[in-house]
Design a protein around this nucleic acid. Structure first.
Lengths: 333, 333
DNA sequence: GTGAAAGCGCTAACAG
DNA sequence: CTGTTAGCGCTTTCAC
């Protein structure tokens, strides 16, 4: 039989109200003596309050939902860690949900989280979301979307990265280093970040007086396999390029692999630049020049904004666009 | 104002008991007609039951705790994913906790999870655990430890990997391929897997008629930095070796990097073998021969065993030792 | 087949 | 400074 607040109250010879007040630090009006006595008894008996009971009355669970496509994708662990750190710091826990970018799974998770009365949700939505999905907007608790803005989906806060500028910086850097024919291996164009990076690519080219050649832009997905495949395909089609701007680091890693297999010297013959700066970027050979995304900070900031909303602190900004940073390593000359 | 079971009952003209029974599929004794009527109303009003209320009475939250050192460490995302998949399959959610291998943080998390009344915990414990830490053993709910057996810590179930055999296989393979001087860059000897891998290393050497040379065994931690550092240090000390058995893939990746910097040809002059088979193992150059650990399966199995315990299914075995597998790639000849 | 009623363990007025 | 009391939203006996 588990020990309850009633037991503590009885043993201490006070009411449950008194114990509750002490537990919740609403004890300005409790005498030093009783407080100490109660605290002692709590300790002695190893009493642990039952939060599900208190949640039922306070309507707060101190739990957040984190919905991401897949924790195995190297992009997400840092984000999750950032969110968890902030949540923990503020006394919240995080429920991890892997949606596989699957709208149906997302909906199921949202329902589960709703039932469990989470105080808020951090959401990295699938790219295939349509506005038929009203569950979130009708959700009673605040929702922060991270990394991907969803058209037609109103959320309570947004954390993104300046993808246009990041891509712009990448391409401009390539151009400045003397590369002239930049192959762009993109992710799926259904996702906003992909389109933004493509936009940055175009703008940099134009600003520097180059033309945009459609054959240099190849759409795929955010995987190493696609990077590998994309290079082989470009080579087969006899497309001329002296550098590759990859939609993310995974693509870049695959691309480098293919390039090496085909005997190209990186960075002399072909330069490669990625996007993300995942952990592995500095471990591969040559280590990867890339655009660092502040993944950890995104998660951290998302949790912070979310908790501020939950706790009704004054919130002026509900959209943060974090900046990327060019990290120069050895895959570009 | 949120809609409750009372509202549904009132609208349907039945009691809350009836609605509850229908909700929980204990409706053998409910007439088809009322059931359909109630279900319809639930749908129409978008009623979502409040699980925290029901948890209070059923003493089940359908929530599990997952305590790992750090989700950013490439070893853990797969484990977490495996656990989450199984949990989800069985209607449970997972609370993610990053302990940083810090006993104090572990204790705090255990307390939080206890307060939130999780139904069970999956625990990858810090290596520095001492038996002063009784919180877990005195814990009311089942605990499964994964990957690391903790001496002096009784848990309800254990999932590990056959580290001795994995290491044995690795070293034997190296020997069979003609390598003779195997440097062993280990993790911290305070951890059981490290010691087990060391044991496998010794056994293989002995079985093949080699001697164990202490100077070939260097203790560090499970990071790429240590792999890099370890190679440089061995070289500086003028230790002769023709291959490296690394405590994990991260160490191997660092080692490969250092070896390449120093101009060694891998695998001809020096062969390298890792342990884990993380995602990046096949992406680096040369791609890494390694011992695959079934990370996903460990998480999956852990969740399965845990949930079986929670739901009191017949449990014969409460310890699973999963097998590793040699994955041959290009970092060995 | 269905419902009344007694809690689950805690908090929050409000009263004293 | 402390206690009384009425729930929070749900499940579960047990009676009808």
């Amino acid at each position: 039989m588990k020990i309850t607040i009633k037991d503590i109250a009885r043993i201490a010879g006070v009411s449950t109200a008194t114990v509750s007040k002490i537990l919740n630090k609403k004890d300005q009006n409790i005498s030093e003596t009783t407080r100490n006595r109660v605290l002692e008894i709590i300790k002695k008996y190893g009493y642990v309050p039952n939060r599900v009971a208190s949640s039922l009355v306070t309507k707060r669970t101190n739990t957040l939902g984190l919905i991401i496509p897949d924790i195995v994708n190297p992009f997400f662990p840092e984000l999750a860690r950032g969110a968890e750190d902030k949540a923990n710091e503020r006394g919240y826990n995080l429920i991890l949900c892997n949606s596989d970018n699957n709208v149906q799974k997302e909906e199921i998770y949202v329902d589960m989280l709703k039932e469990k009365m989470v105080d808020g949700i951090i959401f990295t939505a699938s790219s295939r979301r349509t506005d038929k999905f009203k569950k979130l907007t009708s959700f009673q608790v605040p929702v922060i979307t991270v990394d991907r803005e969803i058209e037609g989906l109103k959320t309570h806060g947004i954390i993104t990265v300046n993808n246009v500028k990041g891509a712009y910086d990448a391409v401009k850097y390539l151009l400045n280093r003397g590369y002239k024919k930049i192959l762009h291996l993109t992710g799926p164009m259904t996702s906003k970040p992909t389109r933004d990076r493509y936009e940055g690519y175009c703008r940099a080219l134009i600003d520097e007086g180059f033309e945009i050649e459609d054959c240099l832009v190849c759409e795929g997905d955010y995987s190493s396999d696609w990077g590998y495949e994309g290079i082989l395909r470009a080579l087969k089609r006899d497309i001329k390029f002296d550098s590759v701007f990859c939609g993310n680091d995974l693509i870049a890693i695959g691309a480098i692999k293919a390039l090496k297999v085909k005997g190209f010297d990186i960075p002399r013959e072909v330069g490669v630049i990625g996007f993300d700066d995942i952990y592995m970027a500095k471990m591969i050979d040559p280590d990867l020049t890339t655009i660092k995304q502040p993944n950890y900070e995104m998660g951290y900031k998302a949790a912070e904004l979310l908790i501020d909303m939950i706790e009704k602190k004054e919130i002026k900004i509900n959209k943060y666009v974090l900046d990327t940073r060019l990290v120069i390593r050895k895959s570009t000359k």
